[in-house]
């Protein structure tokens, strides 16, 4: 069965918030997989079987915050992102923060990225975002340092991230 949060990503239990564990062959893949996993969680990709999204929304009312409202649909436009940090954990946290900021201000979801620079203190990438057909099911207020762990190993990288809901 296909992993609903994307390859190498699984959700971990947290009483109040949401966490993921990500495994990847290298740091670049870890960043991509974490982004895919976070947006899959936000858009309820694992919850499609729960019930019709609009079951409790008979009016279908929603007003997007995104750029598409007042500046035209900018989906597909590449966006440069650069983050610097003291270690891989800080890089991952800031990478996800950047993507969530773009999501909240433009209403677009992560699609893919090409990475120009990837090391343990700096990442420079071009990111493509796009609209989702259904509204996001949850909002992540922040990416936390709580239990944040990014570890290189013999077989690749592993990360654990908790997001505030």
């Amino acid at each position: 069965m296909e992993d609903p949060l994307g390859p190498g990503v699984r959700e971990v239990e947290h009483t109040a918030d949401v966490g993921i564990v990500v495994e990847a062959s290298d740091f670049e893949q870890l960043l991509h997989r974490a982004a895919v996993g976070v947006f899959a969680l936000m858009y309820g990709k694992a919850d499609a079987d729960l019930g019709p999204t609009d079951l409790f929304n008979p009016l279908g009312t929603r007003v997007h915050l995104g750029a598409s409202d007042d500046q035209g649909n900018q989906a597909g436009m590449p966006r440069p992102i650069t983050v610097v940090g003291s270690d891989p954990a800080a890089i991952l946290l800031k990478w996800l923060r950047e993507l969530l900021f773009l999501h909240e201000t433009e209403g677009l979801a992560y699609r893919r990225a090409t990475f120009d620079v990837v090391d343990e203190e700096r990442v420079s990438a071009t990111v493509w975002m796009g609209p989702e057909p259904t509204p996001a099911a949850c909002e992540f207020k922040g990416v936390t340092y709580h239990d944040l762990d990014v570890t290189p190993g013999v077989d690749g990288w592993r990360a654990r991230v908790i997001l505030d809901v």
Partner: peptide
């Protein structure tokens, strides 16, 4: 009477 933007929110 429940209203919600998404079903998953109600389930959670």
């Amino acid at each position: 009477e429940v209203r919600a933007a998404s079903f998953a929110t109600v389930a959670e």
